[in-house]
Amino acid sequence: MTRFRPCIDLHAGSVKQIVGGTLTIDDAELKTNYTSEHPSAYYAQLYKKHDLRGGHVIMLGPGNEPAAREALAEWPGGLQVGGGIEDSNAKSWVEAGAERVIITSFLFPSGSFSLERLHSVLQALDGDSSKLVIDLSCRRVGDGWKVAMDRWQTITGFEINRDNIALLEPYCSEFLVHAADAEGLQAGIDERLVSYLSKICALPVTYAGGGRSIEDLELVERLSDGKVDLTIGSALDIFGGKGVTFDACRQWNARRLQSGG
């Protein structure tokens, strides 16, 4: 059954909700929907209180490691962490309390997928694929999607398709897919992408981008036959949004837990 997955997006050391397509190296065109007055640990504590597992802490650029570590320390083993993860630091983030590490850009040196680098990350995690989430955040290209790296600004040649998913699945436990073109816009999910992911992925998948209501959770559940989870960020009241309340989302999960979903 589709679950709501919480998030803690970090930019310049603060918890923020941004429009994903405006995130660049120099942030010259950055559009921010919300900057929280609360530290990352506040949200980690909130998610822990309601046992909302599988949430991701994403470091969007430099200066976010202290805030990420603060969140992980608040709920050891309850949150995933991503942003700047590579073979040299993956294990240290698990030791800092991450349930799983999320990796993207490191796998795509010069924009091309490197199986050698994926092997090196898994080796750093002592071969434990249950500790690894592969982030396949993407942009629409033609009739399909290609993975986007470096704050979603560089489109790689790696297509989201059945063969590539099958290549990756032995090495990880989950996929995280931000639809970068929809991220932060609160304009609705990419329905085609959600449906497609449910058809080509055997592992759990969390989709993020455009979610704005309980109706979107229902839509994702219907489109994916309950195989894809949904992250809602900017539309959530705890991030200044008006589309849906945090309480409604946690109650959604509670109902599915009670029904055995």
Results as ranks from 00 to 15, higher is better:
5 R>A: 05
16 K>V: 15
17 Q>D: 05
17 Q>R: 15
39 P>M: 11
40 S>L: 07
41 A>N: 10
41 A>F: 09
41 A>I: 08
50 H>T: 09
51 D>R: 14
56 H>F: 05
58 I>K: 07
59 M>T: 01
67 A>T: 08
75 W>M: 08
75 W>K: 10
78 G>K: 14
78 G>W: 11
89 N>R: 03
92 S>V: 08
96 A>E: 05
98 A>R: 03
101 V>C: 06
105 S>D: 06
108 F>R: 14
108 F>T: 14
111 G>Y: 12
112 S>P: 01
112 S>Y: 10
120 S>Q: 15
128 D>Y: 09
129 S>P: 01
134 I>S: 08
136 L>I: 08
143 D>Y: 04
148 A>I: 11
150 D>G: 01
152 W>I: 01
155 I>V: 15
158 F>K: 09
158 F>H: 09
162 R>Y: 02
162 R>W: 01
163 D>Q: 15
164 N>R: 08
174 E>D: 12
177 V>M: 01
181 D>C: 09
189 I>L: 09
190 D>W: 04
194 V>C: 15
194 V>D: 07
198 S>F: 03
198 S>P: 06
205 V>M: 04
206 T>W: 02
207 Y>L: 02
213 S>Y: 02
221 E>S: 12
221 E>G: 13
229 D>E: 09
235 A>Y: 03
236 L>T: 11
236 L>K: 04
240 G>N: 02
247 D>L: 03
249 C>F: 05
250 R>P: 00
254 A>R: 12
256 R>F: 13
260 G>E: 06
